[in-house]
Amino acid sequence: MTEAECVECGAELSLHDDLEAGEIIDCGTCGAELEVIDTEPPVLDRAPELEEDWGE
């Protein structure tokens, strides 16, 4: 189990061992959706928000 800091609220997050790049996790403190950018060491960033677009 490793730890990382929520980029939104600064809370410590406990991360599971089989973390994968691209995975989206939730901050248990502020509820922010965070994306795993890298795993060794763990790097988190805000997950992309859903945008609206026209057409096909």
């Binding site: 691209g22 950018i37 992309p48 026209w54």
Partner: peptide
């Protein structure tokens, strides 16, 4: 997830879309 990693691998900032 694989798309987000692949887009970042091409130095992009992944966007998630929903279309009307």
């Amino acid at each position: 997830r694989a798309f987000r990693v692949a887009i970042r691998g091409e130095e992009g900032d992944p966007r998630l879309l929903r279309k009307t």
